[in-house]
């Protein structure tokens, strides 16, 4: 079975480490915040200028001056800091964020990512994604492995205009967890009940399959 969105978030959350500053993109990455393992403390960065994003507010706590990068009302956790957009992107571009999780339309075996523009469709903009991928050492892309029509999104070379070049080193799809290294995808884990053959079939880019590919496990 392909992973659900919640399972994808759970799997990404296992990559969090105690003391990490983390930027979570919109969509599945946002859900990662719900699965931070017990006993570790992470600080969530929101690129509109908040380090230490807290929970959503109660009705009484709603404050129009307190939003996240998705423009949702939020709170600040104890120990949070608030600053300007220039300061926020200084910490992003400067490589101070430990982990960035974001979605993508396509990635390729060279670590290129396309996530912001489909020619012919309305282009709304890249927001902070180009800065995030250019600045982070450590990025996990969350995406579906193939389109609804079965076309692979893990490619030899991205077809769509890029968000960043050579910057992605890990990908979690609904079928597999992979690393990108030296011009190839390396299959590290597969979703429960998903065969290596299916992953091979749905990966258009160069794929290295180790002898043993463990199956992910999830608590009920």
């Amino acid at each position: 079975m392909a992973l659900t969105r919640e399972q994808m978030a759970q799997r990404v959350a296992r990559e969090l480490q105690d003391g990490f500053y983390v930027n979570l993109g919109i969509g599945i990455p946002t859900l990662v915040a719900n699965y931070i393992p017990d006993g570790i403390d992470v600080m969530l960065q929101s690129e509109n200028g908040l380090l230490g994003m807290g929970r959503f507010p109660t009705e009484e706590e709603v404050d129009p001056d307190m939003i996240n990068a998705g423009k949702q009302t939020v709170t600040a956790r104890p120990g949070a800091a608030i600053f300007s957009s220039a300061e926020s992107f200084a910490m992003i571009r400067g490589g101070h964020v430990d982990l960035t999780v974001l979605g993508a339309f396509e990635v390729d075996q060279e670590g290129n990512i396309a996530s912001w523009m489909v020619p012919g469709k309305l282009i709304k903009g890249m927001g902070g994604a180009m800065d995030l991928v250019a600045g982070a050492e450590n990025i996990i892309c969350t995406m579906t492995h193939a389109s609804k029509h079965g076309e692979s999104k893990l490619l030899e070379k991205c077809n769509l205009p890029l968000t960043g070049a050579g910057c992605i080193n890990r990908v979690l799809t609904d079928l597999a967890y992979l690393e990108i290294k030296d011009g190839a995808f390396i299959l590290k884990e597969r979703a429960p009940g998903v065969s290596v053959e299916e992953i091979v079939e749905k990966t258009a880019g160069k794929l290295i399959v180790p002898d043993h590919v463990p199956e992910m496990t999830f608590d009920e």
């Binding site: 957009s85 220039a86 992107f89 571009r93 902070g128 180009m130 800065d131 250019a134 600045g135």
Partner: peptide, 25 residues
């Protein structure tokens, strides 16, 4: 890009005519 936009304004006010960034390369 959002960070480039912020930096363009910051540079504009700080007397820096241009800057290099990896963003968008």
């Amino acid at each position: 890009p959002q960070g480039t936009l912020a930096e363009k304004m910051r540079a504009g006010g700080a007397g820096i005519p241009a800057f290099y960034t990896a963003t968008g390369y």
